[in-house]
Amino acid sequence: MFDKFVEIICNYVEVDPETITEDTRFMEDMGFTSFDFVSMLGEVEDEFDIEIDQQKAINIRTVGEAINYIQELINEN
C-alpha cells in the first residue's frame, strides 16, 4: 500500500520517492497545490476502489494520515 501510494504521489510532484516517509507533508514538503491534491484523490479512488469523503480528506496533511484513511476505507468495503 505504501509503495503504491508513493507511486501515485510521484505522478503529481517531482520528488525522490526514496525521501517520502509517513511524516512527509503534502503541501509544505512536496509542494502539492490544492488542485494537485484534489486531483490525486480521484486517482486514489480509482486505484483502491474506494469513495473518499472530501471533508475528511481536506484535513489530511501527511502521507501517513492519508494511508491510514485509505486503509480505513478499504476495510469498510
Partner: peptide, 9 residues
C-alpha cells in the same frame, strides 16, 4: 481561472 495541471505530465 483553473490551470488544470495536476499531474507532472
Amino acid at each position: 481561472a483553473i490551470a488544470r495541471r495536476a499531474t507532472l505530465k
